[in-house]
Amino acid sequence: MKRWQRVLRSLGPSIGRPRTKEMLRACIGAGVGLTLCIFLVRVTRAPFLPEGPDPTLLLIAPLGATAMLAFAVPSSPLAQPWAAMVGNTVSALIGVALVMTVTEPWLAIGLSVTLAMGAMMLLRATHPPAAGVALGVVLTADVVREVGFSYAFSPVLLDTCLLLLVAVVYNRLTGRVYPFRQPEEQAPTQVTQPGLQPAIEARELTQILQDLRLDANIGPADLARLIDAAHGIAAEHLFSGVVSRQVMTRDVVTTPPQMPVSQVAALIRQHKLRTLPVIDQDGMFQGLVSAFDLVRSWDKPPKAVKTGVLTRLLRPSQDAVEPVAADVMEKTVGTATETTPLGVLIDLLAEGGQQAVPVLDQGRLVGLVSRADLIAALAKAQYPQRKPAIAGA
Results as ranks from 00 to 15, higher is better:
384 P>A: 04
287 G>N: 01
222 D>Q: 15
28 I>Q: 02
100 M>N: 11
390 I>H: 12
357 V>M: 10
179 P>R: 10
2 K>S: 12
306 K>I: 14
268 I>C: 02
128 P>T: 01
343 G>V: 00
256 P>V: 09
279 I>R: 07
305 V>Q: 11
131 A>R: 01
305 V>L: 14
280 D>M: 10
339 T>K: 14
208 I>N: 01
197 Q>I: 12
82 W>H: 08
241 G>T: 01
153 F>C: 09
393 A>L: 10
209 L>S: 04
178 Y>N: 05
78 L>F: 01
329 M>R: 10
321 V>A: 07
314 L>V: 15
235 A>N: 05
23 M>V: 13
207 Q>D: 10
43 V>C: 13
109 I>T: 15
360 L>T: 01
42 R>S: 11
66 T>W: 00
223 L>K: 02
230 A>T: 10
159 D>T: 14
291 A>L: 15
23 M>N: 13
72 A>T: 07
364 R>M: 10
242 V>F: 08
41 V>C: 13
246 Q>Y: 07
371 R>S: 12
317 S>T: 09
389 A>E: 14
324 V>R: 13
357 V>I: 14
294 L>E: 07
102 V>E: 06
137 V>K: 01
252 V>P: 03
224 A>S: 14
324 V>S: 08
372 A>I: 09
191 V>L: 03
80 Q>K: 02
223 L>F: 02
21 K>P: 05
138 V>K: 04
310 L>V: 15
322 E>R: 11
175 G>T: 01
23 M>C: 11
126 T>H: 04
180 F>V: 00
144 V>T: 06
245 R>D: 06
352 G>P: 07
331 K>M: 11
325 A>C: 07
9 R>L: 13
7 V>P: 01
195 G>I: 09
166 V>H: 00
354 Q>V: 03
255 T>H: 02
66 T>V: 12
317 S>R: 12
286 Q>L: 10
309 V>F: 07
260 P>Q: 09
8 L>K: 10
55 P>A: 07
341 P>R: 08
326 A>H: 08
236 E>N: 14
320 A>F: 00
189 T>N: 09
281 Q>W: 03
171 N>C: 06
151 Y>D: 10
142 D>Q: 11
225 R>D: 05
237 H>S: 07
151 Y>F: 15
43 V>N: 06
113 V>G: 06
246 Q>M: 11
235 A>K: 01
101 T>D: 00
92 A>R: 01
385 Q>V: 11
314 L>W: 12
71 F>Q: 05
150 S>M: 13
153 F>P: 08
204 E>C: 02
179 P>L: 04
77 P>W: 05
310 L>G: 09
235 A>Y: 00
312 R>D: 14
389 A>T: 15
253 V>T: 11
37 C>W: 00
313 L>M: 15
393 A>S: 15
129 P>I: 09
242 V>M: 12
169 V>E: 03
